[in-house]
Computed example of a mutant assay.
Amino acid sequence: MTNPLISAAGITIAYPNGLTALKDFTLDVAQGEFVGIVGPSGCGKTTFLDAVAGLMPVAGGRLTYKGKPISGINTGEVGYLFQKDSLMPWRTAAQNVYAALELRKVPQAEWRQRAQDILQKVGLGRFTDKYPAQLSGGMRRRVQLAVLLAFDPPVILMDEPFGALDAQTRTIIEDDFLRLWEQNRKTVLFVTHDLEEAICLCDKVVILTAHPGTRKQVLEVPLQRPRTIDEAKFDPEFPQTLKTLSTSLRAEVGRTLAL
Rank of each mutant, 00 (worst) to 15 (best):
T209P: 01
R112S: 12
A210Y: 10
P40A: 09
P236C: 05
T214W: 09
T26S: 15
K84V: 01
I11R: 06
A167Y: 13
Q134A: 15
T64E: 14
L249S: 04
T46G: 04
T247V: 13
P40E: 00
G137C: 07
I6C: 05
D176L: 15
A150N: 06
R140T: 06
G36E: 10
Q183I: 00
V58T: 12
D235N: 15
H193S: 05
V147C: 14
E102F: 08
G44R: 04
A133E: 08
G36H: 08
L223Y: 03
P226C: 11
R126Y: 10
L245H: 12
L249Q: 03
I70P: 02
E160R: 03
Q83K: 05
L101C: 08
R114M: 05
S86I: 03
V97P: 07
D159Q: 06
F34G: 03
I11C: 05
R62C: 10
D203C: 11
L145P: 00
K121E: 14
G123S: 12
Y98R: 04
T46R: 04
E237Y: 10
D117M: 09
G138T: 02
D203A: 14
T187N: 06
A164T: 07
C200A: 15
C202L: 02
P161T: 02
K121R: 15
P132D: 05
T256P: 00
L249T: 03
Q113S: 13
K130H: 14
G42M: 03
R255P: 00
G54A: 10
G10M: 02
R170S: 10
T128C: 14
T187P: 03
L180M: 09
K233D: 00
D159T: 07
E182C: 10
E33I: 13
A167P: 05
A51Q: 04
D85S: 11
A93M: 11
I13E: 01
L103I: 15
D230W: 10
G36Q: 11
A167V: 14
I6Y: 07
G137E: 04
Q95D: 13
Q83V: 04
L189S: 06
R250E: 12
V155Q: 09
T26E: 05
N17E: 13
V206K: 07
A53T: 12
A164R: 06
E231G: 15
L178A: 02
F82T: 14
S246L: 07
P57A: 12
Q95I: 03
Y80H: 06
T192W: 01
S71D: 12
K66S: 14
R227G: 00
I173K: 04
W90E: 01
P40Y: 03
F48T: 13
G76L: 08
M139W: 08
P239M: 11
L195Y: 11
P89D: 10
T26M: 05
I199H: 09
A232M: 01
A133H: 15
T209D: 00
P212H: 15
G123D: 02
I73P: 03
P132T: 09
C200W: 02
T171P: 00
T171W: 02
P132W: 06
L81I: 14
T209F: 09
N184C: 09
K233M: 06
I70R: 02
L219R: 03
P4W: 05
A94N: 03
V188D: 03
E110S: 14
L208G: 02
A14Y: 00
L249E: 01
P154E: 15
I13Q: 06
V106C: 08
L81W: 04
